[in-house]
């Protein structure tokens, strides 16, 4: 951790170790990265095919969410919205947990972590590079999902206003902005998962434990959130505001839930990352 760079070998500079693109390529070469991103691109097409073959007869009724199903085939924007809505509850959580939870834990389980530290890559720098790249891949996954869904949906169902039974139809231009805002909010709300998974990944050497642990905590929080008897304690649950993006569908936009959700997500993520950095820069790497 010394800044005495003169002590190092020729050409060695702590600030040049573990360049972001090197970490990005490290992760890009992994099958799980390719599969996860590939699935994000394929999912909208599968959904599209299901709508095509399914005949479109559905007798869903009640609830704001069901209306999204009914409207999914009404245009590209609605189709993208539907794909995001069905992914937000679980798929995105798993993908983000995978990118963020497995990045440190898998290096530890392969034994390559100690060689990176012996390079030496400063620990905080290593962790920062891993976190930034994992977050970038998570963002790419979200954008790929939304982008493919939007393009595929628009090609198949056309460029129509964004409809919902919650409020009046929104013209395509502002509708696209709303969709982007929803993607943005989903990205922010996924910071909780990213924080939990990353922290667990630093604390454990088992990638499965980190990814599974984060997903299980998310599910636990979702279950507790269903119990209205908990009252105001529910506001402290990291998943309490995960559906707040629906406020972006009404006119005028309801941002209160979004703001609270962003506060919750940012606070949790900062806490988790803070602990992760604090722990990783002090712990003995024994794996």
């Amino acid at each position: 951790m010394s800044v005495d760079t003169s002590a190092g070998a020729a050409g060695y500079r702590p600030s040049r170790t573990m360049p972001l693109w090197a970490e990005a390529r490290r992760q890009a070469s992994r099958r799980r990265t390719q599969l996860a991103l590939g699935f994000m691109a394929v999912l909208p097409l599968i959904v599209l095919a299901a709508f095509e073959f399914g005949g479109g007869e559905d007798d869903e009724s009640g609830g704001a969410f069901d209306s999204l199903v009914g409207l999914a085939t009404s245009g590209g924007l609605n189709f993208a919205l539907f794909c995001l809505a069905v992914s937000a509850g679980f798929l995105l959580v798993v993908v983000v947990a995978l990118f963020c939870g497995d990045t440190v834990a898998s290096e530890a389980s392969w034994g390559s972590l100690r060689y990176l530290l012996a390079v030496p890559v400063p620990r905080a720098r290593l962790l920062a590079a891993k976190l930034i790249v994992a977050l970038a891949y998570s963002a790419v996954a979200l954008v790929v999902l939304a982008g493919v869904a939007l393009i595929a949906g628009t090609l198949r169902y056309g460029w129509h206003p964004l409809g919902s039974t919650v409020a009046a139809e929104i013209a395509p231009g502002p509708g696209l902005l709303r969709l982007l805002a929803i993607v943005g909010y989903l990205a922010v709300s996924m910071l909780v998962v990213a924080g939990l998974a990353f922290l667990l990944g630093v604390l454990t050497d088992a990638p499965l434990g980190a990814v599974g642990g984060a997903v299980m905590l998310w599910i636990l929080s979702s279950i507790l959130d269903q119990i209205t008897a908990l009252g105001n304690i529910r506001y402290l649950l990291p998943t309490h505001f995960s559906d707040a993006w629906m406020g972006l569908l009404s006119t005028p936009v309801q941002v209160d839930g979004l703001v609270k959700g962003a506060i919750s997500a940012v606070a949790y993520a900062t806490l988790c990352w803070g602990i992760a950095f604090w722990r990783f820069t002090r712990k003995d790497v024994t794996s």
Partner: peptide, 21 residues
């Protein structure tokens, strides 16, 4: 931990560690 002088040291500790893929 992280001393720059480690860059003048090559190491094999506790077996190999490689990216399997």
């Amino acid at each position: 931990p992280g001393s720059p002088v480690l860059s003048r040291v090559g190491a094999l500790v506790e077996g190999p560690g490689f990216l399997p893929h």
